[in-house]
Structures are given as C-alpha cells and as structure tokens.
C-alpha cells in the first residue's frame, strides 16, 4: 500500500516502495534522503544540527547529522538495503533571515550543509544531488518507487532531484 510517511523535525523514518517519505518546512535544517535503488528502500532524516559532540545535550540522536545517519542506515539495512548501493540526496540549509552582519548563529544552515557533506564522505556514501543554501524554506518528499527527491518551495517553484 502506498503510504505517505511524515518525518518531523529532529526525526528520521525509513520505508520501502511504494511508500513516500515527506518532511515539511525545512529551513536551516537539512533533509537527508538515503536510497537503495535496487531494493527500493529509503530513509529521510530531518536534522537540525551538524555535530552531537559539540552540543551540550545528546538525548535525541535524530537531531544531529552524525548520530542520525548511521542509525537510519542501519534500519534501512535491516529492511534489506545494501550499503554499497545507497546514495544520498540532500536539501535545506537555508539562511532564513538576512542581517548585514550575520553571526555564526545565523549561518547555521551553511554549517549544517558543510557538515553533512563531510559526514557523507566519511561514511563513504555517494551524494548525487544537493539543493542547499538560499533564503527560503523547502518541503521535501522522497518517492521510494523511483528515488525521486522532490523539493517544493513557495517562491522558487518545485524541482526534482
């Protein structure tokens, strides 16, 4: 049965064909989609922060890229995905408000994107699409039948990754 699985902020979900995974309203957060095109199994993580080691609390591992991704990959493998076939597509990492003197606090989207790039490299997962940056929100859908990662925005239209 085709099902639309919602992924909240600081959460991740996995699923298989013919379901889809959706996450609404990404701003500076990043939606990381992992997909195995042969098994048609995928996962979507809505991470808020790059690195659990720099934070003062680490209760919810789905909040951080470096802890969410290995957990999500494990669950995909349990469903039958094979790690060498898994590819990544990412979207989000915007800077929603522009100040003349943007501090580090404001540039968290950019830092998130950089950290996810490095993490994927470290985990040896190939990143095939990247739609990060800008100053607008995104809603993302990962279609598990095709692996298409659809990015919807309000002012910048819709694209398929």
């Amino acid at each position: 049965m085709s099902e639309l699985i919602k992924v909240g902020m600081a959460d991740y979900k996995v699923g298989r064909n013919p379901s889809s995974l959706i996450s609404y309203g990404l701003g500076s957060c990043i939606g990381i989609a992992l997909y195995d095109a042969v098994a048609k199994i995928g996962g979507l993580a809505h991470i808020m922060l790059p690195d659990s080691t720099q934070a003062r609390s680490a209760e919810n591992p789905a909040k951080f890229a470096d802890t969410a991704l290995p957990l999500m990959l494990d669950e995909m493998i349990k469903l039958g995905a094979l790690k060498p076939r898994v590819i990544a597509k990412i979207a989000g990492g915007a800077q929603m408000f522009t100040f003349a003197n943007a501090t580090d606090v404001m540039r968290v989207g950019e830092r998130n994107a950089d950290a996810v790039h490095m993490l994927l490299k470290k985990m040896d997962i190939k990143m095939v699409a990247d739609d990060t940056g800008g100053n607008y929100g995104r809603t993302v859908v990962l279609h598990l039948d095709t692996g298409i990662y659809r990015v919807r925005t309000i002012a910048k239209g819709e694209k398929e990754l």
């Binding site: 990404l26 957060c29 929603m96 929100g137």
Partner: peptide, 17 residues
C-alpha cells in the same frame, strides 16, 4: 515562508541545549 522553516532559526539555537 513556511512556518517550520522560519521557526527553525530559533529551534536550532534551542536544539543545542
């Protein structure tokens, strides 16, 4: 923009704590 996207700015700051 989308409420989630705008709120993410402050939620991320809180997420560090």
């Amino acid at each position: 923009d989308m409420a989630g996207a705008i709120l993410s700015v402050i939620l991320i700051q809180l997420g560090q704590m």
